[in-house]
Amino acid sequence: MTKYIIRRLLQAIPLLWIISVIVFLLLQIIPGGPMAAYEQNPNITPEDMARLEEQLGLNDPIHVKYLKWLGNILRGDWGYSLATKRPVLQEIGDRLPNTLLLMGVAFMTTILFSLPIGIFSALRQYSIFDHVVTTIAFMGQSIPIFWFGLILIMIFHVGLRNPVTGRPLFPARGMVTLGKPFSPGDLAWHMVLPVTMLTLFGAGTYTRYMRSSMLEVIHLDYIRTARAKGLAERTVIYVHALKNAALPVVTIIALDLPGLFGGALFTETIFSWPGMGRLFYRSAERVDYAMLMAIIMINAALIIFFNLLADIAYAYLDPRIRYD
């Protein structure tokens, strides 16, 4: 197993390197970047522009630029944001906790909701409850997530009002109320709508997975054996069946985890949540090279890492699987 993990980690290095080359090339061809801001400025002469370009190393051939970038990265220097002139890592460090908070809570509510509902739905296959659950899950998978966010705002921010204060029932912007001292209650109040949006979206998929996985297991012989030897139904379902039914679901969850760090682009944009998704959106609009490069590389590394983690988790949970 250790050998396998080491081999996979070593394979990840060329993979990440190729991704960095591709993304770097992509970014180089996209117009915009550092000089775009100066082009409109009448006080800067073409000679100044040329000097600046030379200074910033913009006239270097593309492979020289790439090697410079790679060298800096290996020394831990991710460059500066064009928009704020701050170090890229500092910008990301500011946003990452916000994204993790939002996505972490949403992820937990998604799992707490969808797994029990999926199990229950499978145990009562073809009941009314099952039909309602599968239909809602199907809808959750088909709804455009950004539109669902808009509908939530429409109902719970524009439509419904707090009967006491007369203000909107839930806020639709930001993490905290401006001008108020920070309080956990205020933060939680701001999280209700974005978390709801993310939960419905993820719950559709997980409920369907959990349900079909449970259905597959529950008809197997060993479950009949467990029942035949007189075990309580509760033990049969939650100990014997769930152990095997959870396997594929755990893999799916592990594969989805990198999404937490990337941040939900739509959720953060709609609810003005100052996280990684919004940072990417802003950086993409301004073609902020160093920021975009960093965000994509970090995300690619996480995707590769969690792919490996999913495989390891699978092998750990299912002793029949051996990677050597």
């Binding site: 996209i30 682009l265 590769i304």
Partner: peptide
Amino acid sequence: TDLMLSLPQLFVLILMTLLLRS
């Protein structure tokens, strides 16, 4: 194929639309 699957889809989608627009 693995390489393409390791790309953060939405982010790369956006970069590519910016590229093709230009």
